[in-house]
C-alpha cells in the first residue's frame, strides 16, 4: 500500500479539526494559541505535500518557511498581549474578558 497525497491531506485535515476544536472549546487564552499553532502546522503539511507531489518542492518549502516565520512573530505578540491581559484582569479566560479597558 503506497502512501499517496490523500494520506497526508487527511492527516492534516484531522489536525486542522483538532486545532479548531481547541480554539473553540478552551477558555484559556494560551490554549487558544496552541490551537492556532496546530492549524498552522496543518496548513504547512498541506503546502509541503502539494509541492512534493507536484515535483516543485522548493516553492512549497519557501511558503512553509514564511508560515513558520509568521507563526513565530504571531505567537510572540500574542503572548505579550496575554501577559498584559493577565496583568490587567488577573485572568486570561477569553469568555470573561469582554472589555477593551479596565
Amino acid at each position: 500500500m503506497n502512501i499517496t497525497l490523500n494520506h497526508f491531506l487527511i492527516v492534516s485535515s484531522l489536525l486542522f479539526s483538532f486545532g479548531l476544536y481547541g480554539i473553540v472549546t478552551r477558555k484559556n487564552a494560551v490554549m487558544v494559541l496552541m490551537g492556532i499553532e496546530l492549524i498552522l502546522n496543518a496548513a504547512n503539511i498541506n503546502f509541503l505535500a502539494f509541492s512534493r507531489y507536484s515535483n516543485s518542492i522548493d516553492f512549497g518549502q519557501v511558503a512553509a518557511l514564511f508560515v513558520i516565520i509568521l507563526a513565530a512573530a504571531e505567537s510572540a505578540i500574542a503572548l505579550a498581549i496575554v501577559l498584559n491581559i493577565y496583568k490587567t484582569f488577573v485572568n486570561i479566560n477569553v469568555d470573561e474578558i469582554d472589555k477593551l479597558r479596565e
Binding site: 502512501i3 497526508f8 492527516v11 489536525l15 502546522n41 504547512n44 503539511i45 509541503l48 505535500a49 509541492s51 512534493r52 518542492i57 512549497g60 518549502q61 512553509a64 518557511l65 513558520i68
Partner: peptide
C-alpha cells in the same frame, strides 16, 4: 509534524 516534513523531502523545513 517535523517527521512528516522529513517524509515529504523537506529536510531543512523539518529542522527549522
Amino acid at each position: 509534524v517535523a517527521g512528516f516534513y522529513a517524509l515529504l523531502g523537506a529536510d531543512f523545513i523539518a529542522i527549522v
